[in-house]
Every structure is written in structure tokens, then in C-alpha cells.
Design a protein around this nucleic acid. Sequence first.
DNA 1: ACAATAATGTCAGCCACTGACAGTTGACAA
DNA 2: TTGTCAACTGTCAGTGGCTGACATTATTGT
Lengths: 221, 221
Amino acid sequence: MRAEMTPREGLRCGLRERKKRRTHDALIRAALELCTQQGYDRTTIDEIAEAVDVSQRTFFRYFTTKEDVVFAVQEIVEARFLEALRARPAAEAPLEALRNAVLLAWDDLGQVIESIIPVELHMRTYQMIESTPALVAAHLRRSSDLEELIATVIARREGLDVETDPRPRIVVAAFSGVMRLAGRLWGEAGECSVESIRATTEQHLDGIVPAIAGEWRKTAP
Amino acid sequence: MRAEMTPREGLRCGLRERKKRRTHDALIRAALELCTQQGYDRTTIDEIAEAVDVSQRTFFRYFTTKEDVVFAVQEIVEARFLEALRARPAAEAPLEALRNAVLLAWDDLGQVIESIIPVELHMRTYQMIESTPALVAAHLRRSSDLEELIATVIARREGLDVETDPRPRIVVAAFSGVMRLAGRLWGEAGECSVESIRATTEQHLDGIVPAIAGEWRKTAP
DNA sequence: ACAATAATGTCAGCCACTGACAGTTGACAA
DNA sequence: TTGTCAACTGTCAGTGGCTGACATTATTGT
């Protein structure tokens, strides 16, 4: 069995593949439903496995850790964002390209998510992550890995080498930090819609340049 | 027993306090020594406890998790940095104050660390953290908590409210991301001295403004 | 229908971590 | 000095995440 199901490959092929994908998605749904309802720590793998009627061992053949299943959907979102970023015209400045890619990715994302779980469940998951220390840690580590990829893309756009020029990583670090901040504030606000997270994101991204420039007292917030 | 030993309080008082602090520090030393030598994952709590000749249960009365003991020294470093930041003159712009506080903190840090463990061991610990996924995650989460504190300090400097004005958090997010980047690159470089990490930090911090401004092709890196 | 192969279940076991209870040791007053 | 109280420690039993090994069942290509 190959656990890599990343590029939604399950479409073609035989019964075995379809069955595999079915339990895979069922595990995600069960896990998110249980965790968002009763809390991540108070949900055991045995419960999740039992809900899908497989053994605990089988769960661990699909997801290497308990955290993994929580981020399975995020993974798809991230892939979308990377695509959008690579498609940005070379004329845009790095930070500008990042900004536009995020906002575009948020737009037609609902479709993709809905094929696996209800969007509403995904939003609740996002909020659960931000309020669970263990998941915050995991989320940050994943973001950090993603940053590395983004930095490479940015470097290529500008014709630079990531290893020798620190600037691609620097913008990405700043960008990424702000993205996380926006996500966290959105989670705390309780407002659960896709529009609201888009708006919060946009607002914060547009605050980067003036905030860094440091002329805080000249202009109103 | 109170596990909070944060403000190095052990100086005064009786035998009991001294004994407590002795095993506390001994556990740190043993843990770091063992983990840096044979790897974090391949080191068990039982080994650490046995090296200090206490029970496993006692270990968990001093440190709530295995990760905690690894970051015990970092905690002191962070407290130092916060002090330095609060002492910065109000005339400095936010990012400028952050920059100067970090560089100052690095200077007279050796003294403080040495009272607990050899500085060289602390440096090796730093590198171990960056090369151990579980610890990277923990480190990121801790940094994220620290960011919140820093943002509050910055907001007070500028006479703003952290909850309504996103700008303090935005600079801090950018600053923090860059700090981590510098730390990671330093770890990968293999160079273990305090000077080299100070230099790397300085270089990257000074890169923030131009990188965000986006005029990459006008000036040489 | 029949191998070859892949997915699953079962079982035993490691390790981080916790609660409960009992034993030990330092602090402090009589 | 001694006895009492409180703090610290050890032991033990148990939970939950996670893994390796091996047997069992299910699909696939022939």
C-alpha cells in the first residue's frame, strides 16, 4: 500500500484504489468530526478507527501520526496556493505576488474542499487547530516547511539563488508570519465564513509595508 | 513543590531549596548531554532520570514534558531579551529597537548561561533543536507565545492597543520570522561560536527593510 | 481458477505521561 | 531534642500514541 494520495489520483483504476480512498476520506471525516466536537486530546485513535470500522493499526497505515489526519485537508489548500503563486506574472514584486496568490487561492477553494468534507467542518477544524497547543506546534512546523518551498519559487522569479541570497527567505518569513497572525485573529473572532477570513488576510497583508517602514505616527491605522 | 524556578530564586534559603535546584540543574545537564550525543528521539526519560539517580516520576515533577527540559535554558535567554527590549529608548523605531535589543542580549549572555551549563553545550543544543522535527515544532510554538509578549511591549512603546491595531503584531511577526531564519542558517553552517550567530542575526535583520521594500534589482545583495 | 501481491487484523511491546498512595526528609516550634 | 507538619520522592498501575512481526483476507492479472 502506498500512503501517498496527494494528487487526488483515485479517479481512474480498480476497486482496490476506490476502496482505499473511501476509507482514507472516511478516516478524515470521522477524525475531524470527533475532534472538533469533543476536543483533540479527548479523542483517541481507537475511537476514530472504530467509527470507520477499521483497526487502529490500519489508521496508522494511512496517517503516520494523529496530527497528520488533522492537516490532510490543509495540504490540499497549500498545494493550491503554490500553483497560484507560480502562475503570477513576473512583473509583480515578490510581496505583491504572494498577496495576490493567497487571495486568489481563497476564492475557488470551496469546490476542492467540498469533495472531501463539508467546508463548514474544515473551518471548524481550522479554529480547533489554533486553540490546541499541540496542533499549533504542528501547524507552525508545517508552515515552516512550506516557507522553504515558497522561498524557492520567489527566488526563481527574481533569478536568485536561495542559498546565497537571504532576501527571498526574508520576505517569505515576514509574509508567513503575517498570514499566521491573520488566521489566528480570524479564529478568535468566531466568525466562520470564508469571506471574513479573506478580508482579514487582505487587511493584514496590506499592512506589512507601512508597518515595516516604521512611520507609525504619521498615518492613521 | 513548586515547579516555577524562573527567576533564579535559589540563592537564599535552606537546604531543601538548594537540593531542589541542584537536581533541577542536574536534570537539565544530563538531558542535554545525552540528547545532543545520541539524539533526542533515542534518549528516554528513564536514561535521563537514571543519570541523575532519581525516579522517572520525579523528572516529571520538575519538567512537565520531555520537551520542556530542552528549552529550560532558552527560557532564560528569552527573559533577557525582553528586559533589553523594554530598556530601549523610545526614540527608536519598533524594528530598530528589536534589532538592538537582540544584539545586546547576545553580548552578555554567556555569563548567565554558564551558571547552569557550559555555553558550548547550549550551542549544541540549539543545533539539535533545529535538526529534530519534534523540537522544531515546540520551538516554533514557544516563539509564537513570545511574539505575543513582544507585541505588547512594542504596542506600549508606541502608545497603541494590541487588540485594535494590527501593526505591532505585524512587525513582530516579520521580525520573529527573520530571527528564526537566521538561527536555522547558523545551525546548518556548523559554525558553533557566539560571534557567528550574532553576525548572522545582524546581517539578516538589516535585510528586512530593503527586502520588504521590494526594490531587489536596484541594489546588490 | 490460481498464484502473486496488496491491504488488513491481531498481538506484543516501547515510551511518554498521569493519578494514587506510601515512605522519606527537611523545616520549625515546643 | 524531639515531634509534628509539610514538602519531596519512589513505587505501581494504567492510558494512549505508535511500531514491528506475522498471519489472514481481499483484489488483481493471467
